[in-house]
């Protein structure tokens, strides 16, 4: 976790307020915080520990246990590659490996230009159009290496056109 002193904690405090200062609210509070900042910044996590009267280590323990939480900011576009059973059988692993090589980042990483983050998901439940890749909220089915190329390119162009 990076120390990040410039963060405005006001919305995070509001999340604590609305969910209530209970231990059982910890996960919903952290989910709210991630929705606000796109990740869980360290000062916010420390604030939550103090407000809930629990150790920061407990907050950290919860944060690192669940796949959903991120401790670093993510790229502008999140590429999720489904690694469910059907996608695996249809070549999902090849797609993930190819993307990882193509973008030069490992799973969970972000490109140095901050444009893409690469993630794997267990199953998106669209097994009929396997293998599946989701960029932000948009689904791409029956993905091949060529399709990946044009998908990446379209987002690159979208970024440079702005």
């Amino acid at each position: 976790m990076n120390k990040n002193p410039d963060i405005d904690l006001t919305p995070a405090r509001e999340a604590v307020e609305s969910r209530g200062r209970r231990r059982s609210s910890l996960i919903p509070i952290l989910q709210d915080i991630q929705k606000i900042y796109g990740y869980v910044p360290r000062p916010a996590a420390e604030m939550v520990a103090e407000e809930l009267s629990i150790f920061p280590a407990e907050v950290y323990g919860t944060l690192t246990f669940y796949a959903q939480f991120r401790l670093e900011p993510r790229g502008r576009h999140i590429i999720k590659v489904c690694q469910g059973t059907a996608c695996h059988v249809m070549g999902g692993k090849d797609i993930l490996d190819y993307l990882s090589g193509r973008l030069g980042i490992t799973t969970g990483g972000t490109t140095s230009d901050g444009l893409f983050s690469l993630e794997r998901v267990a199953c998106l439940g669209c097994c009929g159009i396997a293998p599946v890749v989701v960029v932000d909220e948009k689904f791409f089915g029956h993905v091949t290496v060529q399709k990946i190329e044009s998908i990446i390119e379209s987002y690159r162009q979208g970024a440079s056109g702005e």
Binding site: R23, S24, L26, E58, G61, T62, Y66
Partner: peptide
């Protein structure tokens, strides 16, 4: 354990 807010162990 998860509903109670901790690590789901």
């Amino acid at each position: 354990a998860s509903v109670e807010g901790g690590r789901g162990m």
